[in-house]
Design a protein around this nucleic acid. Sequence first.
DNA 1: CTGTTAGCGCATTCAG
DNA 2: CTGAATGCGCTAACAG
Lengths: 345, 345
Amino acid sequence: MKPTIDDIAKKAGVSKATVSRVLNDKSEGVSEATRVRIKALIQELAFQPCAVARGLATGKSRSVGLIIPDIANPFYPPLVRGIESALFKRGYGLFLCDSDKDVGKEKEHIRSLLEKRVDGVILSSVISDCDCQLDLLEERGTPFVLLDRIIETRKGGAAVYLDNRRGAKIATDHLIRRGVSRLLFINGPEDLALSKLRLLGVQEAWNEGPGERKPIILRHGDYTATSGESIVVELLEETRGKPHFNGIFAANDMMALGALRTLKKWKIRVPQDVGLVGFDDVEAAQYVDPPLTTIAQPTFEMGKKGAELLLRLMDGEKPRKRIVVMEPRLVIRGSTGDITYSIGG
Amino acid sequence: MKPTIDDIAKKAGVSKATVSRVLNDKSEGVSEATRVRIKALIQELAFQPCAVARGLATGKSRSVGLIIPDIANPFYPPLVRGIESALFKRGYGLFLCDSDKDVGKEKEHIRSLLEKRVDGVILSSVISDCDCQLDLLEERGTPFVLLDRIIETRKGGAAVYLDNRRGAKIATDHLIRRGVSRLLFINGPEDLALSKLRLLGVQEAWNEGPGERKPIILRHGDYTATSGESIVVELLEETRGKPHFNGIFAANDMMALGALRTLKKWKIRVPQDVGLVGFDDVEAAQYVDPPLTTIAQPTFEMGKKGAELLLRLMDGEKPRKRIVVMEPRLVIRGSTGDITYSIGG
DNA sequence: CTGTTAGCGCATTCAG
DNA sequence: CTGAATGCGCTAACAG
């Protein structure tokens, strides 16, 4: 077996308390001479303090849990990266939990993380009103940060999310500027708080912008390319292939890509016949034809900020800004082309 | 604070040894009556055994570490998902470590995981001869599985990887069948064992196939789209925009997408002028224009198999099959079209 | 500056 | 079938 703190203490001819002191870099309480001697011994024997024993003694595990709905969704990897890098810098480990978009699994994961005595949790919940999950965390007194989720009912909750309403508004404004007068808005699941905010943004732009426009055609997808496809197919079939819209805004890129694929299949030109805007700016967006105009989220930054906020909370700080709102950015590409549609056409 | 095993024991009027027994489902040693009583109490008080204390007592942390070069690389998410799901089923936690393609960080991560006393490690190393990292693990006696990496020098190492040679051969065979006579092979970094195997596969196909072919043009990229771009740009500039190749095989999809983008920019038609095959089958591959023909890897399965192999090792088994080789699959899409090129053209 | 003494919360002997 | 005792490896008072 590997050496323990006792081995070091014996070899150095001191008590383990002293070794513990140099291990934890306690500035006072150890003479320079013994400190050096002990450090050398630690080096020599390649001694690694057991984090488990440490955790039991201190009540801190120096690890945090992250729960996300689906790591295979291209939105999350940069987020995870941001989190991991911030945590790693501070010496924290990251437990990754994939809830598979299943509230039940999500709860199980929280339970399991609590058992593991993580010092904090970052949660990107599947549903918006994740109250019962949060209750578990609060009972334990485990700090947590909500990521990419609006915190509605909680009083003092911490969260990092994008200004989704503004993102939706920017996207819609852009389409309006391009002359889109009949908009298909493919929103996310209806019950998500996020979806409601985006709808507000779309409506705001649509009602306030200059010019004349038909009522918005609103549909709900589930963030998969397939759902984007089937929504557009259904609409096109209803009108025998002649689209009753000349602009589409999809709540994420995957649905936009699905829509794009369908449009091409039906020989509807993008952007000439229909302008298309997505949301997220996933990697694929720049490689499709035409490249997809989209609303970029600073995902890496969001992850980083979320982790930093959590670190603060775990340090016992009471940061005044417990809600961090990130700004969306419009990335204009070919799918809204240089074309301006005839207004009211 | 949360209840401990002592609280349960006292309330139940038994010793904590008994509680421990029902906690661990020891079949013998507890009467059905007390067992039921204790279980009820556990439920009632929402008692969760502390995994940290458990770990210290048993020497097992019920967690494993995963080290990958870059979670933002679309190749990894499905892999991680496969790993996580297999581990979760067995009640293991997963520490995610992103080495950022940096050998130094990779070693740090291993050290840190060892401190955390993980029961096992899954490593997708940045470099091929990761001997010193593995030494650390072997010293500790921590089981590990190499993922997507060939294990060359180790005697009894465990690993899961794709038959890369075969994948490269299949891709090249396909291009040959399409009539490609002058091949540009954009390989990965030259020093990777993986790259060597792929080169072997390409050469095998190229030399053994029917018909006549020019020597392979070999270049090395770093798996980024940008590197794919610049390699093709350089080649095209050399020959004033007239490509001296009519087929490209890239060692991953990102480089293939970079190549595709460049070809389009130079008005070279895919697949009519140049056929293009990638590797990995990332999500974007099916959405680009033309959709990318590519070699699919069963990444989710690889992750799953890797985790299962590790679980076996951690259980103390000595599985005879410590090397799992997965089969590549050719996915034919538009980038190698229905076109057959004129041979020797 | 340093050693001694207690736990942290649980599993695991060994007696009873 | 059950309880008391011991230790996992380390930190944290408290003495000296």
